[in-house]
Amino acid sequence: MIAGIDPVVLIASLMAASTPILLAALGELVAERSGVLNLGVEGMMITGAICGFIVAVHTGSPFLGFVAAAAGGAALALLFAFLTQVLLSNQVATGLAATLFGLGLSSLMGQGYSGIKPPPTANVPFGPLAHLPVLGPILFSHDWVLYFSLALVVGTWAFLKYTRAGLVLRAVGENHDAAHALGYRVRLIRTLALAHGGACAGLGGAYLSLVRVPQWTEGITAGAGWIALAIVVFASWRPGRVLLGAYIFGGVSVLQLRLQAAGIAIPVQILSMAPYLITILVLVVMSARRGRAAIGAPAALGRVFHASD
């Protein structure tokens, strides 16, 4: 115990608190590396939150709930992809519209679901490992979605760095005309990247409604999607830094509430802004150290592609 706060409990709870943002940010990272700015993350998260909640409640299976959440988020992302990739609409405006649409749709779908308790998402059974001191609560007593999110960090990193498909995706994000000239199908690749991003956002949303809160309330995401978007930028589009950013943000958010509960005399206003401030500071300092190249925004980010240009 340090000043009335158990660091083991703190770390275990910050991991759970960060997972929704981490999932959404990882998905958005892939979409942005393919060159599309998707401002609809918040809408896709909350669509996933309600789709997952409804399916989990009716089937009694949180797993099916998460599958439905991914499907729901991806469906909204495909709508976004259709508008921006086929009809060539403005990505910023369409993204904002997707967020508003998702918020409205979710509250419509959620009618009659407030106050219901979803089936619990069980922790992965690690047997005696979960009872280890310190390591047990931190490493071996979480639900499978949390482990999945960590695996996704490694998976996304390896995919972008080591696979041919990842290279093609990055090429599309850096210079879509060149990628097109080489014969890569820019719109298809971007659509797939968006669907992946939407599915991840949906999972993040469902993690809120099925694990963290866990219940359905209108507006449950309360801006988490926007935090995810910001973390992608401050993390210079790198999966490892997204993990760091999400965990710092979640960690300081949880820590500041615990400091208050423990009665530590730090002004509340400073505690409240700490998560935003510290996350930005850490990620900016890390990027600044390695020069301009380290910023690494995909060159074609947000630009409209049409084969005739």
């Binding site: 709870s13 809120l208 963290r212 449950i220 309360a222 958010s253 949880v254 509430l257 208050q260």
Partner: peptide
């Protein structure tokens, strides 16, 4: 809601 839940847990 997530923040309220975190505060309750804290």
């Amino acid at each position: 809601p997530p923040k309220e839940a975190d505060a309750a847990q804290a």
